[in-house]
Amino acid sequence: MIQRWTQSCDNDIYEKDSIITYVSMTERLSNNNFFIDKTPHIIVNQSICSGCEQRTCIHACPAELFVELHDGSIGFNYEQCLECGTCLILCSKDGALTWNYPNDGRGVSYRYG
């Protein structure tokens, strides 16, 4: 599936608008090998997230695994996690994420690297 998205880039020097044909994340991740663990290796603590305004995880996760649900809570899908750790480093609230590597070789398994 191909989507179109528009992004406006603004900075202090010049402005431009670019329209780029963009592959959906679902398609982008569909070629990766994942051995899915039965239990999630990252756990989101909703009661801490409910007090978070930045919601950095949503924009920062390169696999787009965090979403804001209608009720304002955070939806998270651990299954296609790339185990990069960006969410852990950039999350602004202590204790919101319990972050571990998956066990027993589970999780992403790169064929190229």
Partner: peptide, 20 residues
């Protein structure tokens, strides 16, 4: 990571920008 946090623009969009 600082700029990712600050600008709230996705890294994969930047990749797409370069590719195109």
């Amino acid at each position: 990571l600082e700029s990712l946090k600050h600008h709230q623009v996705r890294a994969e969009y930047a990749l797409e920008q370069i590719k195109h």
